[in-house]
């Protein structure tokens, strides 16, 4: 009979607080992850939006090609017009 009462006391005084403490720790950690994940989602969306201009690299490539071609033509003409130094 006494052992039963001791078991009840241990259950109420030790086991229940320990269970509550552990569950509260898990809940706090889970809640702390939520804002971090939401911030990461916002940053990922912003990063994706920033990369919208990456498609313009194709235009940049075309313009660089045309510029280099023009420079090459200009250099070829200079090569014909100017005398060599040596």
């Amino acid at each position: 009979m006494i052992l039963w009462w001791i078991g009840d006391v241990v259950l109420l005084v030790v086991i229940l607080p320990v269970v509550v403490y552990l569950l509260r720790g898990v809940l706090d950690v889970a809640k702390s992850i939520v804002p971090s994940v939401q911030e990461i989602a916002v940053v990922a969306a912003a990063g994706s939006k920033d990369l919208d201009a990456a498609a313009l690299l194709l235009t940049t490539q075309d313009q660089a090609t045309q510029t280099i071609a023009g420079v090459a033509n200009y250099g070829g003409s200079l090569d014909v017009i100017l005398d060599d130094a040596a």
Binding site: I33, V37, Q38, A44
Partner: peptide, 17 residues
């Protein structure tokens, strides 16, 4: 509930990435 929010947030992250 917290893990559900995390899952939704990670879905948005995966879509953005």
């Amino acid at each position: 509930v917290a893990l559900t929010k995390i899952t939704r947030g990670l879905d948005e992250v995966i879509a953005g990435v």
